[in-house]
Nucleic acid binder design. Sequence first.
DNA 1: GTATTCTTTGTACAGTCGTACGGTAAATGT
DNA 2: ACATTTACCGTACGACTGTACAAAGAATAC
Lengths: 205, 205
Amino acid sequence: MAGRPVDHQRRAELLDAVVDYTVEHGFSDLSWRPVAAALGVSTMTLVHHFGTKEQMLVAILGRLRERMFAATGDMVGERPDLAAAARAAWTRTSAPERAAEFRLFFAVYGRALQAPEQFAEFLERVVADWMNALRDAQGPETDPATATRTATLVIATIRGLLLDLLATGDRDRVQDAAESFLATLEHRTPPPGAHDRAGPPAARR
Amino acid sequence: MAGRPVDHQRRAELLDAVVDYTVEHGFSDLSWRPVAAALGVSTMTLVHHFGTKEQMLVAILGRLRERMFAATGDMVGERPDLAAAARAAWTRTSAPERAAEFRLFFAVYGRALQAPEQFAEFLERVVADWMNALRDAQGPETDPATATRTATLVIATIRGLLLDLLATGDRDRVQDAAESFLATLEHRTPPPGAHDRAGPPAARR
DNA sequence: GTATTCTTTGTACAGTCGTACGGTAAATGT
DNA sequence: ACATTTACCGTACGACTGTACAAAGAATAC
């Protein structure tokens, strides 16, 4: 009754190779034929496994997120406090060997901003994923509004510094600014008038 | 000897119209024919005025920078201190009516990161322009290293917050975080161990 | 063995792309 | 009037795009 079984592993292999290609060769003018040629397969093989080009783009973004979150995101959640989580995030994201991945990340980000309906899932998750991780890192005793505010700032600052680093390559200057920012998280004092109970956290747990 | 004179104004009109179109319709799949159709001119008219497509992209980026700097950059230089300059910059850049321009800005940014040689000028200026303005805003009495560090952080934070705002549209949350950041600039206290002479600046001049 | 389903590939087609070529109308200098 | 240069446009060509169609080889169930 059943013929040849579907080879899910083959698709996963191809997808990983396609993501590799996209990280290296860019995202804006991606097309079937050059990718297929680079992978040493026929164009139609890719079409068979991914359907349409838009479906392949969706698959690429999903796999890319998996990779990047595996390299950075999970590390953040295990940290005892926000300052350590932010430092871990910055260390991971600014590592030179991840530069190509983040160039692709920002290329997708920019394109998503101009085609929101096509990249709706990306736009929904691009902030929310990190937001959850960074709010969790602040523990339940932190005021929710403060936690959200701080998480928003950490995400924004890290991504802004990354944009600078990738554009200028001036690692010394950017790293210096990052250290300054991380220091403000580590020696946190509530601004005048704020009712923020979070002092420098003693290591919980 | 000389025939019909070159109509520079006509080119400027077309360029402005093309930039308008690009801001609205995006940058990734820009091509002669749809633009020409939207402007009500022939494809060859655009080719005649801009040469090749790459030259038109260069012209678009240049005009876009002029526009954005006219709307934000010059305001920053006239401010008496960094906090006021940063607040002015944030107010201008986060204004809803400029959202489309900044979506295009980040789309170009992302693409430039993946084609550095083609967008070399953009990458050189995208940080340096603001950096100069924000260092000037801190006055000559600020330690140069501190001024650079602070300017880097202001640029990064504003752009990171803009990325968040454009992706999520959550203006309340982002504005709250921005206020928190701007407050740290206004009530600046040197972090422990730093030799930073810059207190809250009394209005110079 | 046969039947069935998946994998891979080649070919082909309609569409869009940038732009080279050629020609006409308009504006200048002599 | 004339020559010259620009402004604008239509046509055309080769390259590339996504993908529909068809066919061959491989792996399963019976």
